[in-house]
């Protein structure tokens, strides 16, 4: 039985300086397993919120607790959250396998050999994201979509209780997008994780997601897929 994880938002605001991106404080309690899709127009603060949840930046007010500890403290230790960002770093001579295995850094010293368990986790992540055949390619020579899959595999390898993905489907083809959402919701359930992903694809979100956070008019709205009924998620966004 996997342990249960709990993420608590206590009256938080987020933004930069005095410029908050939400008008009133947000509180929420999230129990694992959870797969939450974050939607909202450009500039509504999705990325900022995701960074706050993962403890990379501080909330402008309130606090975020993960399993009873503040996330900005946890982030200093590493190992509780893995991120997939939309940007694409360039590193010469780094292979896809190196990139994915770099996820083990949080738990390991770089000179140690991978354990059998870790190797199995690595192979699982490569298989699930469909990039096993690319393992010896340099990351600078693969397509944007393939790179994104490699970063997702890296996050799976990190095996953290919280996974945060900022627009992970941006460069993926339609089939890969569907498979990714399927995979994330599956992983969340099987491994009792909390997974956040932002997306600009409401139709696909409604098809594959369960729980949605919408940022609209500087407010956060929480929606269950079951509650939507015949309504379209994309109509809620406008």
């Amino acid at each position: 039985m996997k342990t249960e994880n709990k993420l608590i938002l206590e009256q938080i605001l987020w933004g930069y300086g005095n410029n908050n991106l939400v008008s009133k404080p947000v509180s929420a309690e999230i129990l694992s397993p959870a797969f939450i899709l974050l939607l909202g127009a450009n500039g509504t603060g999705k990325s900022t919120l995701l960074k706050v949840l993962g403890g990379l930046i501080n909330a402008t007010a309130g606090k975020v607790m993960f399993n009873g500890e503040p996330v900005n403290k946890l982030s200093k230790k590493g190992g509780f959250v893995s991120f997939v960002f939309a940007s694409r770093p360039h590193v010469d001579f780094m292979k896809v396998s190196d990139l994915v295995m770099s996820g083990f850094y949080a738990h390991n010293n770089p000179f140690a050999k991978l354990s059998r368990q870790q190797l199995e986790r690595y192979e699982f992540a490569m298989r699930m994201t469909g990039i096993t055949a690319l393992k010896d390619n340099y990351i600078n020579k693969i397509s944007d979509g393939e790179f994104q899959k490699a970063m997702i595999a890296r996050a799976l390898v990190q095996d953290t209780p919280l996974i945060i993905l900022d627009e992970p489907t941006a460069f993926l083809d339609y089939r890969s997008k569907r498979e990714l959402f399927e995979l994330l919701s599956q992983i969340a359930k099987q491994e009792s994780k909390i997974i956040f992903a932002s997306t600009h694809d409401p139709d696909l979100a409604q098809e594959r997601g369960e729980l949605f956070w919408l940022i609209k008019n500087k407010e956060l709205q929480v929606l269950q897929n079951a509650e939507l009924g015949n309504k379209k998620l994309k109509d809620e966004l406008i």
């Binding site: 960074k51 993962g54 990379l56 982030s75 200093k76 230790k77 590493g78 190992g79 959250v81 893995s82 991120f83 960002f85 940007s87 770093p89 590193v91 780094m94 990139l99 770099s102 850094y105 949080a106 010293n109 770089p110 000179f111």
Partner: peptide, 21 residues
Amino acid sequence: YSGKLNAYLLGDLYAKSLGID
């Protein structure tokens, strides 16, 4: 320090999310 130097190559945010100050 190699491990940290390697982790830093992917960018500030990834390094920070691994717990690097």
